[in-house]
Amino acid sequence: MKIGCPKEIKPQEFRVGLIPAAAAEATGRGHDVLVETGAGIGAGFTDEDYTKAGAKIAPDAASVFDAADLIIKVKEPQAGERKMLRKGQILFTYLHLAPDADQTRDLLDSGVTAIAYETVTDARGGLPLLAPMSEVAGRLAPQVGSWALQKANGGRGVLLGGVPGVAPANVVIIGGGVVGAAAARVAVGMGANVTVMDRSVARLSYLDDVFMGKLTTQYASEAATAQLIRSADMVIGAVLIPGAAAPKLVSHAQLSTMPQGAVLVDVAIDQGGCFETSRATTHQDPIYEVDGVVHYCVANMPGAVARTATQALGNVTMPHLMALADKGWRQALIDDPHLRAGLSTHEGQLTSVPVGQALGLDAVTADAVLGL
C-alpha cells in the first residue's frame, strides 16, 4: 500500500502524523511511504530522518494526496486538503466531526473512507488514540491557565501555588477522566487548591485514593458547578462524550458570578467546547475575554509541545496503521471491532451515529457498511 503523510497546515500545528519509526516499520513490510518535505520539522524530524527510514520525500501536499492510498495526519483535513481527497482513499487522523458540519459534508462528498483517531476504542472501553493527547492537553491546561491568570494577560494576577501567608489559587476541573486526572496532577504539583468534578462516583473514589487527600472531589451536579465557579480562579473543562458534541456546563449568564479575571481553559474545544462562550482559538492568538473572564480555547493544545506529542501519538497509531496497510481497511475493520469504531465516513455514507445526531444527518453503522 502507498502511505502518504502531508505537512500539517492548521495554524501553529507543529506535529506530524507519521514518525520515522513508523515509516521504517511500513517500508520494512513492503509498503511505499511518501512524506511531504518539511512535514516533520516542527516535531524535530528532518527529511533525512525519513529517507533513512526508507520513505520518499514529496515536493508538496498535492503529490502526497495524489499518490497515496492511505493518508495519515494529525489534525482534521483543512478545506484545501479536503478537495484533494477521493473515493477509494483512506484517511486516518483526528476528525472531531460533531461540531463541524462543513468538514463532515466535504468528507461525504469526497467519498473518502475516513477513520477517526478519537473514536477508536480498546478492550477496556478506553480511547487509546485519544488518551496520549488527552494526557498532554491535561498536563498543559494548568500551565497555560496560570499564564492566562497573569495580570499582563488579562487575568486576576493570582499565583497558582500562592506564597506563605497568601492562599493558593482555586482550580476547578470539570471531568475526572484522562484529561482531568492529568490536569489535577500538574495543578496539585503547582500548589493549587484543586477540586475535581465528575458524575462517576467510582472515578471520584479512584482519584481520591490516587491523590491521597491532596485534592477535593465533588459530584458534578449543576448546583455544585454553579457554586464552585463563584470562587474559582481557574476552571478547566475536561468533559468528553466520545464522537459527540461536548455538553455546555458553564453558561454565559454564569460568567457574571465568577471573579473578574478568572480563567476558563476549555480542553473540550475540539468537540465544540464545554463552556457556552467558548470559541476555538490558536496558539498565535490563544485567549479572549468575555464579561471579564479570560478564555483559553486553543483547539490543538498538544501542538505546543510537538515533539513529545508526535512521539506519543505515533506510538499508539502505529499498530493500527500497520493493520490498515497490511490488510486493507475492510479486513482490518472486520478483524478489529475497536478500530471499526473509528469509521466515520465511507463512500458518501456517514458511519458515526453520534455525529449524525449532532448534525441532524442520517447515519449507518460501520457493521452495516461491512455487511456484519
Score class of each variant (00 low, 15 high):
G175D: 07
G176K: 01
G177T: 09
V178E: 00
V179L: 14
V179Y: 09
V179F: 05
G180Y: 12
A181Q: 13
A181K: 13
A182T: 06
R185N: 12
R185A: 15
A187M: 11
A187D: 00
V188S: 05
V188E: 11
V188K: 11
G189Y: 07
M190E: 07
G191S: 12
N193I: 01
T195C: 08
V196A: 01
R199W: 00
S200H: 03
S200F: 07
V201E: 05
A202E: 14
A202H: 04
R203S: 03
S205Y: 07
Y206W: 00
D209Y: 06
D209M: 08
F211S: 05
F211N: 09
G213A: 08
T216K: 15
A220E: 12
S221F: 08
E222G: 00
A223T: 13
A223G: 02
A224Q: 11
Q227R: 15
I229N: 00
R230P: 05
S231L: 04
S231W: 00
V239M: 12
L240C: 00
P242R: 11
A245R: 12
A245I: 07
P247F: 11
K248W: 09
L249V: 01
L249G: 03
L249I: 07
L249W: 08
S251P: 12
S251D: 05
H252C: 04
Q254R: 03
L255A: 00
S256R: 06
G261H: 04
D266V: 07
V267T: 15
I269C: 10
I269Y: 01
D270T: 14
Q271G: 12
G272E: 11
G273W: 05
G273D: 05
F275M: 04
E276V: 07
S278A: 13
S278R: 03
R279K: 15
A280E: 15
H283V: 09
Q284T: 09
P286D: 10
I287A: 13
Y288Q: 11
E289M: 11
